[in-house]
Design a protein around this nucleic acid. Structure first.
Lengths: 146, 146
DNA sequence: AATTTACTGCAAACAAGTTGCAATTGCAAA
DNA sequence: TTTGCAATTGCAACTTGTTTGCAGTAAATT
């Protein structure tokens, strides 16, 4: 999926391809993990040539892009609502409740489960957000030291 | 797991078995689904003989009970943070983004996945919160009508 | 270039959850 | 059973994340 193809989809909608949208979209595109609105705001504010972009505008942009399916939202159990480019193959992270690290898994492990759910419930177009958390290997070993 | 055994665990901790804790605990115990702090507050306010209990107290009670492992928290992608008695066998719900219904699955489908994650990452004591959402059978069929 | 309509920043409102503090109350030891 | 202390409570104020109203600005379409 190219950045250009995303611009295309915006032009095809009733939305306008403004500097703000370009900055947010580019930020998300080059970031492979998901980001909070605040994180996007921070990155755009410092790294972009754009002089300034209100946090409110970031929220409204993300909402608009979500509505046309270019962006999707996931809930992180600790960091709250996060945003990412929609439809990219995704994996999941495991969060350490001791040190706070997020460890990425190689692949999404839930697709087979979604198929089960569709079969059992008649739901369609299933999506999911998952949070795994526990104690990471490092924290476990340093517990033994102490 | 009896309500009495939960009282026991509170007495064994440094916590006190106050009217507030009793009301919150009883509310969660008899409710098999998870509840938001506000929902617990509402139920306790109307259904309990307790004259009043501040919402802040509900939050603090839930925090304390979570700390000793009697209560656990899950994130609902739409309804936010929810609380439930910890350690009960749990299942998951699927949320319809059209009509808002939550359909309960018969069992938790993620235990095998947690084992995979532990093997791959060295994490221990894994827990998870999951949100599945899509369009329920009813909403799909009414779309065809319209 | 003119027109239309989306977009923007700003200030203010809002909701969920947290904190400080003084008053209260379990509960355990005397 | 009374006493003392730490846990608990209610209240008000605060923080953080997010939304809304509004008036001015700027894309896209003609």
């Amino acid at each position: 999926m190219t950045l250009e193809s995303l611009y295309e989809r915006i032009r095809d909608s009733s939305l306008r391809l403004t500097k703000g949208k370009l900055a947010v979209l580019e930020c998300l595109y080059h970031q492979h993990a998901s980001l909070t609105a605040q994180e996007i705001f921070d990155r755009v504010s410092t790294q972009s040539d754009l002089e300034s972009l209100d946090l409110v505008t970031v929220y409204r942009t993300l909402e608009a892009l979500t509505k046309i399916g270019v962006v999707e939202q996931v809930e992180h159990s600790v960091k709250g609502r996060k945003f990412q480019i929609a439809g990219r193959s995704h994996s999941h992270t495991v969060h350490c409740i001791v040190c706070g690290v997020d460890v990425e898994m190689k692949e999404c492990l839930l697709e087979s489960i979604e198929q089960k759910i569709e079969a059992q419930t008649g739901f369609r177009a299933l999506r999911h957000t998952v949070n795994f958390y526990g104690e990471c290997a490092l924290c476990i070993s340093s517990e033994h030291e102490a």
